[in-house]
Amino acid sequence: MTIMKDAPERTIKDLEGDVHPDWCPGCGDFGVLKSLKEAIVELKIPSHEVLVVSGIGCSSNLPGFIHAYGVHSLHGRAIPVATGALLANHKLRVIAVGGDGDGYGIGIGHCLHAMRRNLNLTYIVMDNEIYGLTTGQTSPTTTEGHKTKSTPRGNVEKPIQPLALALAAGATFVARGFSANQKQLTELMAQAIAHKGFSLIDVFSPCVTFNKINTYQWFKERVYDLDAEQGYDPTDLSAALAKSLEWGERIPLGKLYQVERPVYEDTEPLFRKGPLVDHKLGLDKATFDELLGEST
């Protein structure tokens, strides 16, 4: 990643996509998009060095609304596509985005493995506790008892705790934001993008159309800022785990955890010669003869 100190001043406008988001008015994803742009501007990352990769869902439409490189991939596959792009060119700033269904449902396997792999990847999940694009079915984070289109008698499955999973899987940066707390969210995103290693930000991003339970009001009544918590140490895994499981009357927002651990990119010997995209193609005669010579 390049964080250019003396780069020409970039503004949010430079990141404006030429398509206006077609999310429902009031959708939480607007706030996420705004914070992401602000964070990129704050970090002075040139937009052409950013690759935003998403899956499928309302939230996964985000790459279309930001003027950077983007892949709007398959449902649940944002992370492996992003991983491949990052392995090809680890100078790119790769940011994966998507919904709770995309990341914690169909894509949960990739999500956990990417965390333990500790690639230099940021993953932003717009968690609205519902499947928005498919018009309101239960999601892996849907509250117990919540009546959705697919659970008319109420959801009977226990919602997963993504932040606890992330901590257990070895993510080195774990945070939670709320799309209505714009300032904090921007700050968290900037920290996550600047973090060396895998960063997850789970963002409460209300679906105003299909989730009548987890509304802005519902969150506002419950969330509190971890920064205000006396003596909270974000390098303490057990403390972070306890916070990650806190749910119900009080739900923490902010950075739960951050540590440094070698990133995957540092362990790959071939990366010492620079990003793979810049490597020479093919084999020289001596290497080729040596490889084939092993078989004689």
């Binding site: 990769v53 991939s73 492996p80 596509v81 792009a85 090809a88």
Partner: peptide, 11 residues
């Protein structure tokens, strides 16, 4: 998906 992401990125 990794291979495709990598191909998209230019290798």
């Amino acid at each position: 998906n990794m291979a495709i992401g990598a191909g998209h990125a230019g290798i």
